[in-house]
Structures are given as C-alpha cells and as structure tokens.
Design a protein around this nucleic acid. Structure first.
Lengths: 113, 113
DNA sequence: TCAGATACATTAGATTCTTATGTATCTTTG
DNA sequence: CAAAGATACATAAGAATCTAATGTATCTGA
C-alpha cells in the first residue's frame, strides 16, 4: 500500500530536512531509499519531486553541497547549513503540531450517531 | 499562528468528509467556521478551496445536497451519500495511518548527534 | 446607515507534485 | 560477456490542489 499522492504534498521538504538533521550528509538517491525503508514502502519519493526540492533548499541557503566521485559516477551530498538547522526545527515542530491538530479533528466523535 | 499553507494540501477533502460524517448535514460557510473553531484558528479553510472541493465531492457522488432558504438567502446543505460514508472511512483511516508514519519519521533520533 | 458577518460562487495564478524522458555508470546473473 | 536491473544525476510537461482576488447578495447590530 502506498499513500494517495496528495498526502505527501507539503511534507516533502520537511522530511528531507529532518533526514539531513539525523544523518549529517546524504545524497539524493540515498534519501529516496531511506524514506522507502523507514516507511516500509508506504512513502516513495519520486526523483522528479526530490531533485527540484533539493535544488530549492540549496538556493534558499538551507543546505550546502559537496560532490564526490564513486568511480566515474557523481554523487552529490547535501548537508544542513546553520540556517537550515534552524529551519528544520521550525518545520518539524510545525508539522508535528499540524498532525496533532489533524488527529484531534479526525477523532471528533459524532453528535448524531 | 496559522499553519503554512502547503500543509493543508491533500487533507481538505478528508476533513470535509469527516465533518459531514460527524454532523449529518452542514453547509459550506458552517464548515469553514467549524474548522476554525475546532482548531483554535490554526486551520482556516478559504472559500476558494472549499467550494470547488464540495462541488467535486458532489460530482463524485460522495455527497448529496439540499437547498434551504433562510429569509431570502440560500443555504446549501451537504450530506454524505452511502458511498460517501464508505469513502470517508477509507480516507480517514488512510490519513491517520499517514500521520502515524510521519510522526515516526519525525521522531527518528540522530545517529550523529 | 453602514460596517461586519453570512453565504454563495468563480477565476487567475502559485505551488507542489507525478509521469515521462534523458544520460550515464555499476553490478549481478544467466 | 551481454543484458537487465540498480545506482545516480537531471529536466520538463502536465495534473492536482491550493491562495488571493473578485463578485453578488442578504442579514444584523451598533
């Protein structure tokens, strides 16, 4: 089972930031695999969503990059910048708060049942 | 504080369905006010998002409508259809599951801290 | 009376994703 | 050793979902 695609909307950036906070440095493909593994295949980040997100984080100054060669193949590592660390805390706590609010909304019991 | 607008994306339809499941029938404006009240102003549904969503639910056969006049003013009530009730259970449990998964992702502790 | 609330609706534009495509290298397996 | 599948980057067209703005009209309270 994979979640309806609309659910991921808005959470991808926060997921990526949090993973970088937990792992110091990661590269794109690694992030897709890590999320897949941690969520037991329930969340699968597509590359078409991930790479533009990483590029946006970089142009916002939230992450820095370093390129490494594995044989002839490029690997681009991303790490949080200081402002990225701050932003991560904000986004993670906002999302956690949002999820609590949603959980409350979804738990409201019927008046008319 | 109001959540970043991207967080609501993908959850609006489920919120509306759940409210209708809890309240048998509601009209659009009432839904916006109810969400605002239940979430202590942290989620404010805009009319530009809500009305198209309600129309989509109707054209999908998930809700039925009845029009009522309050004085000269129209009020359009929405109620879940049988298929809407089924769909609501699916969407609510999917969203609850998704939130658990997200909560898990956000709770992962650093390896490198 | 007149501002603010109630109540519907549509539309242009922004954001964020999916799907498809492209390029290239590495690894495993028959 | 060839070919398939995995690794690894990237972009672009289009879909989906929202915001912000605008429009219409009525009701209510100060």
């Amino acid at each position: 089972m994979i979640y309806s695609s609309e659910l991921l909307k808005g959470t991808l950036k926060t997921i990526v930031l949090k993973l970088l906070a937990d792992n110091k440095k990661m590269y794109g493909y690694e992030i897709t695999q890590k999320v897949k593994e941690l969520t037991l295949d329930k969340i699968q980040i597509t590359e078409g969503a991930l790479y533009p997100t990483l590029h946006a984080l970089e142009s916002d100054g939230l992450v820095t990059t370093e390129t490494e060669f594995i044989g002839k193949r490029v690997r681009k590592y991303y790490s949080l910048s200081p402002s990225g660390k701050t932003k991560t805390k904000e986004k993670v706590s906002e999302l956690a708060d949002f999820m609590d609010t949603m959980k409350f909304l979804l738990d409201i019991k019927p008046k008319t049942a």
